[in-house]
Amino acid sequence: MIIQDAELFLFELPFIQSYKTSYGKMNKKRSIIVKLLTLSLSGYGEASTLPFPFYLPEYTDTSYIVLKDLIIPQIIDQTINHPSEINQLLSHIKGYDFAKAAIETALWDLYSQQLNTPLWQLLGGKNKEIEIGGSVGIIQDINKLLETISLKLEQGYKRIKLKIKPGWDIQPLEIIRNQFPNIPLLADANSAYTLKDIDLLKTLDNFNLMMIEQPLGWDDIIDHAELQQQIKTPICLDESILSVEDMRKAIKLNACKIINLKPGRVGGLIEAKKIHDLCQKNNIGVWCGGMLESSIGAFFTLSLATLDNFIYPAALNTNDYLDSIVTYKCLAENGTLKVPNFLSDFKVDEDKLIRYTVTQYSTRIQR
């Protein structure tokens, strides 16, 4: 494949209702779509960063700058035979894994079209139905919180994830467990606690949680290992696993029992598959997390989730948006979803994409 041109769309897609976590509140998702063009094909990818550097240092506007100024110039007129080649081509750029993942996923789209082979099959997955879980932000109106959970359960979601933070943890979990004693439930702390909170974190063992996700520092492995020794609830690492090498260290230290694997966070599908395979060898359960992607980003994430060791329900946030940038939205039915064979099955609606775009770049215009 010779990459002849590229386009970037920095867009903002509005939510149906605000989404609040321990690190901020959002009314819309600011994200980036990459479009790569060969002589006969076009492929899409998504940089699903958040609009602020509270989850990881990389955020949407920095991803856009790195894509426009550093990554796109490296790949124009390059012959790329397989998506794995992009890792070496961009190895001199340190970090910016979401930006790299956007390019890699667009290459996977091109490669899949070129071979006329479903992406899940190229990754070594199985054409299975993916179970989907629902996520609930910080909703301090208890009645509204319970209504939101009830609605997600009625829609068939297979587990509920509750965002927590200091001061919003024990009380909502008690209320939820009293109302829904048997639902699969996990708590996501987004690095809001420290080992000084260990007594409180031990209390979470009382709620029969599937897991507690990233309770301690965003870049920590060592303290999580100490915490896991003292609590029964499985720790799930998220932000602190940026590579297969991070995963090796976490396994060596017994820092977790579960991993939330997001392709964008680790630089793309190739590194994500390496992490999946290492976890499988070491009996670490994996689930496919979400970064509030559009249907474009969700396609790649869920294609990855067809691999064997994704044993927990995946995240899917496309229901949370008022509109979509594809004609056929990626949606779960009764809490499950059969991953489409090709991204083109969704039919990217570029008129809508441009409607929601706030900044656009094209190499064709720059020539």
Rank of each mutant, 00 (worst) to 15 (best):
Y44N: 12
V66T: 09
N87V: 06
Y23P: 09
K35I: 00
I75H: 09
I71M: 15
I75W: 09
S40W: 11
D69Q: 14
L36C: 03
I32A: 08
V34N: 06
Q74R: 15
L56P: 01
E12D: 09
S48M: 07
I33T: 05
D69E: 13
N27C: 01
H82R: 11
P14F: 08
D77T: 08
T79M: 12
L10V: 01
L10G: 00
Y64W: 13
L67V: 00
S22V: 12
S22P: 10
Y19C: 03
L70P: 01
S48G: 15
D61R: 08
F15E: 02
F9I: 06
P83K: 05
I65V: 13
H82T: 10
I72H: 10
R30Y: 02
Y59G: 00
F15L: 10
I72G: 08
I71S: 10
L13W: 04
T62D: 11
D69W: 01
L39E: 15
Q88Y: 14
E46W: 11
G43Q: 12
I80G: 08
V66K: 14
K28G: 05
P51V: 03
I72F: 07
T21H: 03
P83R: 06
L37W: 06
R30C: 02
F52A: 11
H82W: 11
K20S: 12
I16V: 13
E58S: 04
Y55Q: 10
K35A: 02
L50R: 09
K25P: 03
F9V: 04
L56E: 08
N87C: 05
S42L: 12
L50C: 05
I71Y: 06
S63Y: 04
I75T: 09
D61W: 01
L36E: 02
N81C: 08
N81P: 08
P73R: 10
E85L: 07
K29P: 12
F54T: 15
L36N: 01
I76S: 07
K20N: 07
I76G: 06
I80C: 12
S31P: 09
L39S: 15
A47R: 04
P57Q: 05
L89M: 15
Y55N: 12
K35L: 04
T60W: 04
S31Q: 12
Q74N: 12
I75K: 09
L67W: 00
K28N: 13
P57W: 04
K29A: 05
L13D: 00
L8W: 01
P51H: 13
F15A: 00
K29M: 14
E46S: 12
Y19A: 07
V66Q: 08
L13A: 00
I80T: 09
T21Y: 02
S40E: 15
S84Y: 11
L39P: 02
G24E: 08
N81S: 13
F15Y: 14
S42N: 11
Y23I: 15
Y44S: 08
G43V: 06
N27V: 00
P51C: 03
N81V: 03
M26V: 07
T49L: 11
I33D: 01
L8E: 04
F9G: 05
P83N: 10
L36D: 01
T38H: 06
L8Y: 00
P53A: 12
L37I: 15
G24M: 10
I33L: 11
S48Q: 08
Y44C: 09
K25V: 14
S18W: 03
Y55F: 15
T38G: 01
L50K: 07
A47K: 06
D77E: 15
E85D: 14
L70T: 03
P57I: 02
L13G: 01
Q78D: 04
